[in-house]
Amino acid sequence: MKHISMTVNGDNHELLVDPSWTLLETLRDHLRLTGTKEGCSNGNCGACTVMINGRTANACLVLAAEMGGNEITTIEGIATQGKLNPVQEAFIKDGALQCGFCTPGFIVSTTALLQRDPDPSEVEIRTRLAGNLCRCTGYDKIVMAVEDAAAMLRG
């Protein structure tokens, strides 16, 4: 086992992790943060998207043992003080989800996208979110929600 200290959604965690544990299983099974989903487990679906030091990553392809000293943000860290973030509000308002399994990953990726570019074009939205798959919505409502969230955040 390896000792690591990492921050998850602002809280510091001291953990003993097995080198073979992924960040995804560590978050879900050991820290009980089950908002981050496991779809494909091989980097294709984006359901497991989290931010590591402000950049998105597929948690299923990250070893927990690598994470010492890093700051992780999961879907549980997107809402602040019990209040939904504009990205979450826009997804609800626009009906950008059906089963909802892909939604945590989309919200984390969208949050990262809007931090980088507050006014992305449709092409940029579709390109930056290409690593998040949705089997239900057909994507158009997701794109609309991202555009609405961007407008809300710009104020």
Partner: peptide, 9 residues
């Protein structure tokens, strides 16, 4: 290469 998530890592 892959997606944004992949390129970040």
């Amino acid at each position: 290469v892959g997606s944004w998530q992949i390129q970040n890592r």
